[in-house]
Design a protein around this nucleic acid. Sequence first.
RNA 1: GCCCCGGUAGCCCAACCGGCAGAGGCAAUCGGCUCAAACCCGAUCCAGUGCGGGUUCGAAUCCCGCCCGGGGCACCA
Length: 978
Amino acid sequence: MSTPENPAPTQSPTEPAHRYTPALAGRIEERWQDLWEERGTFYAANPSGALTDGAGEHAGTGQPFFIMDMFPYPSGAGLHVGHPLGYIATDVVGRFRMMCGDNVLHALGYDAFGLPAEQYAVQTGQHPRTTTEQNIVTMKRQLRRMGLAHDERRSFATIDPEYVRWTQWIFLQIFDSWYDTDANRARRISELEAEYEAGTRALPDGRSWADLSDAERRDVVDAQRLAYVDESPVNWCPGLGTVLANEEVTADGRSERGNYPVFTKSLRQWKMRITAYADRLTDDLELIDWPEKVKSMQRNWIGRSTGANVRFDVVGASDHDAAGAGAQVEVFTTRPDTLFGATFMVVAPEHPLLDEVPAAWPDGTHGVWTGGYATPIEAVAAYRSEAASKTAVERQADAGKKTGVFTGHLAVNPVNGSTVPVFTADYVLMGYGTGAIMAVPGGDQRDFDFAEAFELPVVHTVEPAGGLPPEHVGAYTGDGVAVNSTNDEVSLDGLGVADAKERIVAWLEAKGAGEGTTTYRLRDWLFSRQRYWGEPFPILWDADERPVAVPADMLPIDLPDVPDYAPRTFEPDDVDSSPEAPLGRNDDWVHVTLDLGDGPKRYRRDTNTMPNWAGSCWYYLRYLDPTDATDGPAEGTAVVDPELETYWLGPRHNATSGAAGGVDLYVGGVEHAVLHLLYARFWHKVLLDLGYVTSIEPFGTLFNQGYIQAYAFVDDRGQHVPAAEVAEGPGPDGEPQYTWNGQVVQREYGKMGKSLKNVVTPDEMYEQYGADTFRVYEMSMGPLDLSRPWETRAVVGSQRFLQRLWRNVVDEETGEVTVTDDAPDAATLRAMHRAVADVRVEMEHMRPNTAIAKLITYNNHLTGLDRVPRSAVEPLVLMVAPIAPHIAEELWHRLGHDASLAREPFPVADEQYLVEDTVTCVVQVKGKVRGRIEVSPSVSDADLEAAALAEPNVVRAIDGAPVRKVIVRAPKLVNIVV
RNA sequence: GCCCCGGUAGCCCAACCGGCAGAGGCAAUCGGCUCAAACCCGAUCCAGUGCGGGUUCGAAUCCCGCCCGGGGCACCA
């Protein structure tokens, strides 16, 4: 077995024995990876407990710095070169922070439950646990070979029973909570019961607690839990055989995963009351350092909008039958100031008002309103069934086209007593606001379109200064002042929009006709799935079909063996199908007899599993305290030791941590903007309310990395051809042309994927270049947040850089270290300190691409020297270390240092070498460069101006014209205006 | 339709608060090394910053209006 010091002879006899070849790089890399592991080099020290650093010490004076990657899904397909980009970036930051003296915590776990793992297992006919664990082993090997500075002791997978235990434990905490809107936080169910018992809190429906049976009391409480079961319309996806959360359904009504149709079906399902946190989830975005794009996506998804609920009396109907007599319809509007312009109403087709409609059309019904039907009953029934049968896709396609029908109901506008017709139309959604709107065609384009189609009157109640131009057609949605908005008691005329809103809301509230309110687009999170590969719910159903929490000491509830773990799926468009949970297939598991303190009883286990998001909702906490309760409080009842949470995550736990605390750097793709990131924030806030954490937000700083894209090539038949075998050459017109086996192929730009035949794997890169070269290339391709194309042939540039670095220290022929102990010359000193100063700035701002450029520049300077001074190259080796750690460790070692450089201080520039002896001053005439003069950096404005005016080329350019103005920016620039 | 990001050399990308358009890499060309080639070393070539206006002594950078590419949202009252 050869060692890096004594490499095996290379194939080619002419190749120097000690050249930095891929083979040598590989030996160096694997040796250091073993050494780091043996020494525990990257062990992060907790302030107390079992986890110390590699030397057995607890956390010292270094600032805690917690770095995280969005953890991977161990796919069966293996990694391609695009996947590790973020992992390398966080590794570079982590190693850099370590060299800056921070106590860095960086580890990687695996998100291993979920649909793809299950589907892969079904395909290969194996148990999901088998395939998932195999995939994790493969992925760990690929990632280890990259040399990531992770604390391996803190790695885990969400499928580990010890992890599942805590996922289920958190679920039970949420189940055991309700939201106190007065205190604006979650509290324990026992406190709710105590307040009901004491009579200090009224029951929602006004009944008396004392009068209720035990069963009734449980129903009251169960309905208020943050994790609750209810029957309501949910997203049912027959193609996947499970229900889905709103966040998992695309805008055109298909499943995000698998792209199957999704139908609305009323089912009894578990939900999480995330809506209780809508305000805090919106407001606290102010406290964290996230990309504005992600923040706005979250705000958008939560969709807070303030306005008013206004009640319209429904009239007229009583003349025909009893339906609706004395009834009211409540609408939500963000523009109560336009109430005087409401000339009709629209309710969603599913609105309960339509359950009974008048038997005959009232007087004054326009022909166009009826849709040709003889009675409102027929018209509404027809429209409702038409709307119900419309798929989300069709509805989407029809957006903008206004359909609807008059319901026969008339309502009274509370501000002016005018009678307005009530229509139903599918442009009003039952799921938003109250499912009913007041239509103001003068102020809303959608209402205007509807009014035009149905010949309804238009009243403008807002006008811009100077009034609407006579040629104005359509709604006026701009700013302006109220007009036509006066009744006997209140007038809005002349008020701006904000003032008008305030005045009319006050009037509505005084009249009892409405009140100011806030609505949200966010819905409660549908939390149950009818799949096998997920966490079972720690819930038992008693004989009365009421839920009972499994005691914490009985956790985890393991997945049962079932004869078939494939989900029961259906034809993707089978609307009438219903979910069937695979866990129900094991009768022995489902039915249990347990003594929960009131004697042995029969229970039925909940057969749902949790969504994939559950495990990723709290994994950041697991990194802090990965050894379960052994590190925690004596009873072992908390998900994370409070001391560790405060140390790593608490508000202002280091110099850059904000008031919300949280992970110091969280890197991942933007695709989780509203799913994982919203759910995790919600769980974190529940844990905060219950006192388990002190940080207000889980992720203090978020960074979205770009994607590595790739070119793919297709032939005439549209078939992809292997990208690696495509040749590029000039075509007949001089433009680049691509050929494969002699035939011309077309180039496409996009993802890297098996079916596109353009996958490049990290393993190939290790083999052909080594891990360090691969790392340097990925980091030098461009800024981290930009997507860019992979180009294997360009990797050689990074390899050349490392080879030159190697040769600056080691003789390729003999393997001898060639550095001298001579003092560097002045130019080298200046170049070195310039590089040190610049590289530090680039690293601090997470710009490895420009840091590498400056390292290359300095390395090239050293290459030009006859002998490289040790003191000139050692700082370079240290600065390279975060990006290419193996070669840096090896050179550091060969330069005579016994210890790893992982915690050597990152070089600091000496100011005195940063000032140049002279600087080149540019002299412009009318903004154009006409001359250059060498001057002292400390030259005075006056001297510089005089020198500039004397410069021969400048004199020629001025050509005797009178000088009007001279702008001097000493010492770099003079601009002469003539 | 609305919102966000981007457009600089053949390609990937730099350019701080407006101050010489170029740090780095790839490719190409030439030269050196070599019996020769590859590797390696050295050098050269290449854009006036997507388009049109404006502000300024001076604009890749700031403002206005467009074009192209990528992403997000989309009958949310």
